[in-house]
Nucleic acid binder design. Structure first.
Ligand SMILES: [Mn+2]
Ligand SMILES: [Mn+2]
Ligand SMILES: [Zn+2]
Ligand SMILES: [Zn+2]
Lengths: 145, 145
DNA sequence: GCGTAATTGAAAATAATTTTCATTTATAGT
DNA sequence: ACTATAAATGAAAATTATTTTCAATTACGC
């Protein structure tokens, strides 16, 4: 079940948020990219079709979308606050291209065996995990192998 | 092979860096903690025994220690710039306690089967990964189960 | 259309990080 | 021990990132 900009809009409304043109523009900017964008990058892009938008609105919108779990965060490559549209609704992780920034999702991380081993060995009660792969996407490999 | 503050000092020297009291103090502060510390937290701690140190020296020292791979970075829990002494020299990952911040290391992440599956399925050429587990450490479980 | 609570953006405030530069210092060579 | 010197330091300013405040505007249920 892909999460389009349209669906996100209706979710926003359902959650009691107003659907403003600013929010729609932020969603558009994020949805239009297959790579992750920082708040500043989102600001620059949204600005083009919506000059006059405030950076503060970008931050506020990102907070809401994050709270609702509608966008994903990427950490790889030193970027610690960069976002993209959440595509699979299930639990999933990301492959981040270090050349072009493209993010590919995957499900079935299947870390439970590892988690069990760690619980046994360390006494830790594992509750969650952060997993990202970095490398080069297929098309970037084609360009310069 | 544990990496003590003393060993790190000699590594620094070997790499051509001077061993200043400021750097030793930063190393001490990081080595004395089993949990991860932000630059500001390190600043506060170092200050106690070394008042007059500049925050800028903390940042510079952290950059050097990171470049040399002598400290580890922790991402879990929204913290994106917090550090701790690198303990295992081999490739390893972290279990981060969400209660007390204690970091437990583990080796043998054994993600190669998963990486192969992803290469096959997505065409991605995986080069590295970011993996962290979050949860509660043994002693925090004892306190409030 | 109206009323109203939510949203917006300018501006200021705060926090985080980097740059600049004159002064100090660690240390290699004597 | 004494120097020479390149590296390191810290104050201050500059830059960048983020949050707060608040008066004006706006989406949307009625
Ligand atoms: Mn995602
Ligand atoms: Mn580590
Ligand atoms: Zn790519
Ligand atoms: Zn704990």
């Amino acid at each position: 079940m892909k999460l389009t900009e349209k669906k996100v809009s209706s979710i926003l409304r359902r959650q009691g948020y107003k659907l403003t043109p600013q929010r729609r523009a932020v969603l558009n900017a994020i949805a239009a990219n297959k790579d992750h964008l920082t708040p500043a990058e989102i600001f620059d892009r949204v600005r083009r079709e919506y000059p006059g938008i405030g950076l503060v609105t970008i931050y506020r919108t990102l907070d809401i979308l994050t709270d609702l779990g509608l966008i994903c965060e990427v950490h790889s490559g030193g970027h610690c606050r960069s976002y993209l549209m959440r595509r699979p609704q299930e639990h999933h992780h990301h492959l981040v291209c270090s050349d072009c920034g493209t993010v590919t999702d995957f499900t079935n991380c299947d870390l439970s065996a590892l988690e069990q081993r760690l619980s046994r060995e360390t006494g830790f009660h594992v509750e969650g995990h952060l997993l990202e792969f970095s490398g080069r996407c297929q098309s970037c490999q084609t360009i310069t192998p």
